[in-house]
Design a protein around this nucleic acid. Structure first.
Lengths: 210, 210
DNA sequence: TAGATTGTTAATCGATTAACAATC
DNA sequence: TAGATTGTTAATCGATTAACAATC
């Protein structure tokens, strides 16, 4: 399959959510216009993006289930993904219980923490495990994705352990930058950065108003 | 102040984290190279970005405290930001207790939920308030940013209430797209989308390997 | 001074979009 | 058929970067 430009991959994810909704509503067909309007982009962009998929449109638009399947496959979601969470603090526990993950095919298979007082605690259907046991766990379970939800100062260390045991990719919820070999993709969630972006936009908005 | 391109604003946030660290370490000077290496971009980009600020570099680079102040001001963080959280589920409660927010100047002033069984519960130093009281609260406290941490199906409704009471901007943690007037900026956190991006990157990586 | 770093711009690169022929 | 929508490409737009003179 052809290399897909990063911005297209990002949008695929939004398209998938949009198409999912349409399928649930029982719509058989979905047009570039439907998608474009629901995410606020142009129909050109939608058609350009979909041209990366092996999908044929008709005068009615695209067949919803076909498009959903193609998007899902392009995103590597056709066989489900196993996820492990490192860090059982507030954020780690919240993510472990985030129902949307399961709904979207991300199966959380374990949550770990270094703090002995958290080990053994129930988090949803899981129990917090000790970091001492993570190596054996990773070797056995071979999760695809590791979510880092530890304090900034331990984030790189957590990433190193995951990489060492062949993790496929990392979602970094910590605010620090982490480094991995080029074969291990990382996505930085950057919640604080999002808040700062907002703050900047608000500032500009308010200086414009006055 | 000149309009700053969105990708530059994003990077400003990373620069600020990086410069913050340097200041804490007691470094007086920081060069475009220091910043570039720590986030993995080119020195050209860093210098181009900094040219949007009112900061002068020297042969030693930039004075760390000056740069920090300029970045902070550009991001509208110079006077702190009041934040309200809508939704006291797992994610909302985790965010309310996320210490990093306070450290970065985001002051959480209230958390709300519609579920009576959650109202009154302690979340860190706050108590969950009823959605019935949010209007009065917003009128009185006038927070800058609203964080939406409710289920997807209620996200738009929550946004509407915030907008109606003059919120400055919205961080949407729900997975659905929300619509606001052009004067109210929204940043979508899109955690599921991040996981899907990773999934796609992993798929490409693995097809390359084999 | 010599050396390091900035500030700036032209060139490059990549993403988005308008436009319209092709299609069903 | 007539009408709606796709698929495609050339044009546009915007972001990144290399290069180097200016600076301290």
């Amino acid at each position: 399959m052809e290399r897909i430009p990063p911005p297209v991959v990002k949008r695929f994810s939004y398209y998938l959510s949009c198409v999912d909704e349409c399928v649930e509503e029982g719509k058989d067909w979905i047009s570039s216009r439907d998608i474009a309007e629901s995410i606020g982009i142009t129909t050109s962009t939608v058609r350009y993006d979909i041209s990366f998929l092996d999908v044929d449109g008709t005068r009615n638009g695209y067949r919803a289930v076909t498009l959903r399947e193609a998007l899902s496959k392009a995103l590597g979601l056709d066989k489900g993904r196993k996820v492990v969470i490192v860090g059982a603090g507030n954020l780690g526990r919240a993510l472990a219980q985030h129902e949307e993950f399961e709904e979207c095919g991300f199966h959380i298979c374990g949550i770990f923490d270094i703090d002995p007082s958290l080990v053994g605690k129930k988090v949803g259907r899981l129990k917090v495990r000790s970091m001492k046991s993570i190596s054996a766990f990773l070797r056995k379970e071979r999760p695809d994705i590791g979510v880092i939800a530890v304090p900034a100062e331990s984030a790189q260390e957590a990433a190193d352990i995951l990489v060492e045991h062949g993790i496929g990719g990392i979602l970094n919820m910590a605010s620090t930058h982490i480094i991995t070999p080029p074969t291990v993709p990382v996505v930085h969630a950057r919640i604080v950065a999002s808040m700062r972006e907002l703050s900047c936009a608000i500032r500009l908005q308010r200086t414009e108003e006055s």
